[in-house]
């Protein structure tokens, strides 16, 4: 985005107002569903005429901003399992670094197809995801909430009076999923949240609320490492990135607040419909 006539003008003919609205809405919806806003933002930008190479770093800016926006609330609520996030993030970050390094040599058509497939896959996973697997333990109280020292387990509040214990399982398979998520994040800039959250819930059997919060934390780390690479490659247009960041910070804060009131399974089902539309359009229009 450059400057003309005293006002911001989006690069590659994308209107700055539309860019800000897209970043705000996708960050809100992304935070609500625990998928990361980039999975929506990047395809929308590509469909609006922006190249995938330019859209990818903006997607990661949106993810990093959404992660930061949700951090204070999620830290105070103690719903993030940081030990799980950091353990799995090592695989994701290495894969994201590799993905970002080779993304410059991947053609736009290939990226568009990949994004289309990724959107359809995310829609499928989001639609089939289960509700509550772990049940509340009546012996647990507010003082038990938080992650346990020395293990990948903890307790989270399902409601004001219900507290649920959990323990991450099948760690090696989970790590493979996290590496795949990191590779896609580095290559396409859509963040791997739509892979990480289902992997954490369905493979590692961590409750969806903890999984979504932990993913929101860890995608911030993955996007940080990929953004460093994009910055070095000169692919970050600062004014575009700043506009997306401002909108995504607001959207991420709104999404984190709304997540407290709305049931995530319902949000994900609606999100799945949107993702199917985006995925099909990307595959048809490439």
């Amino acid at each position: 985005m450059g400057w003309a006539g005293g006002g911001p003008v989006a690069s590659e003919d994308v209107n700055p107002v539309e860019l800000a609205i897209a970043a705000l809405l996708t960050a809100t919806v992304g935070a609500l569903g625990g998928l990361g806003g980039a999975i929506l933002l990047v395809p929308i930008l590509v469909l609006s005429g922006m190249s995938a190479r330019t859209a990818a770093p903006l997607g990661l800016i949106s993810v990093a901003a959404g992660s930061l926006a949700a951090a204070p609330r999620q830290l105070r609520g103690q719903v993030v399992n940081h030990r799980l996030g950091i353990s799995t993030e090592i695989a994701s970050s290495i894969a994201a670094l590799i993905g970002a390094l080779v993304s410059g040599i991947v053609g736009q058509s290939v990226l568009a197809v990949m994004l289309g497939i990724v959107a359809l896959a995310a829609a499928f996973v989001g639609a089939r995801r289960k509700g509550i697997r772990n049940l509340p333990d009546p012996d647990l109280g507010p003082d038990d909430v938080g992650e346990h020292v020395g293990s990948l387990s903890g307790v989270y509040p399902l409601s004001a009076t219900e507290f649920v214990p959990y323990q991450a399982t099948r760690i090696p398979v989970g790590l493979l999923g996290m590496a795949a998520a990191g590779l896609i994040a580095g290559l396409s800039g859509v963040s791997g949240g739509f892979i990480k959250t289902p992997t954490t819930t369905e493979v590692m059997h961590v409750p969806v609320k903890v999984a979504a919060a932990t993913t929101t934390f860890s995608v911030g780390i993955t996007s940080a490492i990929a953004l460093l690479v994009f910055q070095a490659q000169g692919r970050l247009v600062v004014s575009d990135a700043a506009l997306v960041a401002a909108a995504a910070l607001v959207g991420g804060t709104l999404g984190a607040r709304l997540q407290m009131f709305l049931p995530p399974p319902r949000v994900r089902q609606a999100l799945s419909v949107v993702l199917v539309i985006i995925g099909v359009l990307l595959l048809v229009q490439r």
């Binding site: 700055p16 800016i61 992660s67 600062v238 700043a242 960041a245």
Partner: peptide, 30 residues
């Protein structure tokens, strides 16, 4: 980010750059 998006020239670029630095640095500090 607001400064980076809406202030013209070098000032906007610097503010936007610092914003990106915070977005990259925050998870690392965490």
């Amino acid at each position: 980010a607001l400064g980076g998006a809406f202030l013209p020239g070098r000032t906007g670029a610097i503010l936007g750059g610092i914003c990106i630095g915070i977005l990259i640095g925050a998870p690392i500090v965490r």
